[in-house]
Amino acid sequence: MRVTAKTDYAVRGCLELAAHRADGMLKADQIAAAQQIPGAFMLSILGDLRAAGIVESRRGADGGYRLALDPSDVALADVIRAIDGPLASIAGVQPEDVDYRGASVHLRDAWVALRVAMRSVLEATTLADVVAGDLPAVARALLSHDDAYVTRPLPGRDAEG
Score class of each variant (00 low, 15 high):
His106Glu: 03
Pro95Lys: 14
Asp129Asn: 11
Pro155Gln: 15
Ala61Val: 13
Met25Val: 13
Gly161Met: 06
Ala117Thr: 06
Glu96Lys: 15
Ala88Gln: 08
Pro136Arg: 00
Leu142Met: 04
Asp62Trp: 12
Val74Lys: 04
Gly133Ile: 02
Ala137Asp: 01
Leu107Ile: 05
Ala22Met: 11
Glu96Gly: 15
Val105Tyr: 13
Thr4Ala: 08
Asp84Glu: 01
Thr4Gly: 08
Val131Trp: 14
Gln30Met: 10
Asp97Leu: 14
Ala52Met: 06
Lys6Tyr: 03
Leu87Thr: 00
Ser44Ala: 08
His145Gly: 10
Gly24Met: 08
Ala52Ile: 12
Ala82His: 02
Met25Ala: 11
Asp99Val: 07
Ser120Phe: 11
Gly64Tyr: 15
Thr7Ser: 08
Ala139Asp: 01
Tyr149Ala: 10
Arg101Ser: 13
Gly64Asp: 15
Gly133Asp: 11
Leu135Ser: 03
Ala77Ser: 08
Glu56Lys: 01
Leu69Arg: 10
Gly92Trp: 00
Arg81Ala: 05
Arg21Thr: 01
Asp8Tyr: 15
Asp97Lys: 12
Leu17Thr: 07
Leu143Asp: 09
Asp73Phe: 10
Ser44Asp: 14
Gly156Arg: 04
Thr7Asn: 09
Gly63Thr: 07
Ala148Arg: 03
Ser57Lys: 06
Thr151Cys: 12
Asp48Ile: 12
Met42Gly: 07
Leu154Phe: 12
Gly60Thr: 02
Leu142Ile: 06
Val121Cys: 06
Gly60Glu: 13
Pro38Thr: 14
Asp99Thr: 04
Arg81Gln: 05
Tyr65Met: 07
Val3Trp: 02
Arg101Phe: 11
Ala10Ser: 04
Gly53Arg: 00
Gln94Asn: 08
Val98Gly: 10
Ala75Tyr: 03
Lys6Arg: 14
Ala91Asn: 07
Ser44Gly: 15
Ala33Lys: 07
Ser104Val: 10
Gly13His: 00
Ala139Leu: 00
Ala33Glu: 15
Pro71Gln: 12
Tyr100Pro: 08
Val121His: 10
Gly63Tyr: 13
Val98Glu: 03
Arg58His: 09
Arg119Gly: 14
Ser44Gln: 06
Asp158Ala: 09
Ala33Val: 10
Val93Thr: 05
Ala19Tyr: 15
